[in-house]
């Protein structure tokens, strides 16, 4: 801990509402007000409303208090286990393929001397494509007939047509493929930016010590990037736990609920029944997911704090 210069008690100005006012406090508040209003109305308002709705049964015309019934109903729903398992499966696959890939690409790109801008643009291009358009395009690519785009491509090397999203076993890996393609560009740019902050002297020193490329990556690059890696890891976990768009647009949760994720289950609770969804159950599951993610984030940062600081 660094030493601080304490101000003697008798020299401290006493803060009163008047001094706050004269010091421009009202102006500060005024300029802060739009953001507070927007944040309150659009962020905290819905959060508080969700908490209230999770203990209610409502169709927005009649509302009644039901206590923890919604939470109990969610726990007893056999689809919850399916959704949790599928989401974990998606997260695991995304972690295995989606997490290291951008890092590898970024490190390789940082080694490129010429046309780095072109490679950066190519890597980032999928992020520029609107997610809905990308998902619907990939849905076409996944056409399971022998004339489908991917089946034609793999046919060139003698691989028979694959069912892609039309089979319960291959649907989720197919979605991970699309999600990785769509998201990698953003992470690559973050890693590229972080790599520029690694002091070149460290690589020079490593080279003098006889380190090869892999040793330089392992002993210099990765330790220097650990702060960014920690953040992208937690963002990836939170992002994959909340995956919705891809399974919703590409498979609708099918076949046979094999791509039903937690967020999609929330959506089903709220909107599948056209004569008034179960908004109570939907918000109950949303809150349960938020609590689990908050707890995970807390534990994660506690556990990794030492590594981050050292």
């Amino acid at each position: 801990m660094t030493a601080t210069t304490a101000i003697p008690a008798h020299r401290r100005r006493k803060r009163t509402p008047m001094t706050w006012l004269r010091g421009g406090g009202l102006w500060n508040l005024l300029f802060l007000l739009p953001m507070l209003i927007v944040f309150g109305v659009f962020s905290w308002g819905p959060i508080v409303e969700s908490v209230v709705m999770s203990v209610q049964k409502t169709n927005f015309v009649t509302t009644s208090f039901v206590g923890i019934d919604n939470f109990v109903a969610v726990f007893n729903d056999p689809q919850l286990a399916t959704a949790v398992t599928n989401t974990a499966w998606f997260a695991l696959l995304a972690l295995i393929f989606g997490y290291p890939l951008p890092l590898i690409v970024a490190v390789l790109m940082s080694e490129v001397r010429r046309r780095r801008g072109l490679f950066s643009a190519l890597a980032y291009l999928p992020v520029v494509v609107p997610p809905v358009v990308a998902a619907l395009l990939w849905k076409r690519f996944f056409d399971a007939s022998p004339h489908g785009v991917f089946n034609t491509i793999i046919g060139w090397v003698g691989i028979p047509p694959q069912p892609w999203i039309q089979s319960a076993s291959s649907a989720m890996p197919s979605i991970v493929l699309e999600a990785t393609w769509a998201a990698a560009g953003g992470t690559i740019i973050i890693y590229l930016a972080a790599l520029t902050s690694v002091a070149p002297e460290l690589y020079d020193a490593a080279e003098v010590d006889g380190a090869g490329i892999w040793q330089k990556i392992w002993h210099v690059t990765l330790p220097q990037l650990r702060g960014v890696l920690l953040v992208t890891f937690i963002l990836q976990i939170i992002g994959t736990a909340q995956v919705f768009l891809e399974p919703f647009l590409i498979t609708g949760g099918g076949p046979v609920n094999s791509t039903l994720t937690i967020l999609q289950l929330i959506y089903r609770y709220a909107f599948t029944n056209s004569i008034g969804g179960d908004y109570g159950k939907a918000t109950a599951l949303s809150i349960m997911l938020a609590l689990v993610l908050a707890a995970f984030s807390f534990v994660y940062f506690r556990v990794t704090r030492a590594w981050s600081e050292n």
């Binding site: 927005f60 959506y267 709220a270 909107f271 599948t272 029944n273 056209s274 004569i275 008034g276 969804g277 908004y279």
Partner: peptide, 27 residues
Amino acid sequence: GPTFSAQLAAGTLPDVFNVPFTDSKSL
């Protein structure tokens, strides 16, 4: 099914709209 219940919840349906036979009585 899904878009109708979202519109119903959000109050964004037009003044005159249609629903299938299966839903009108319950609504």
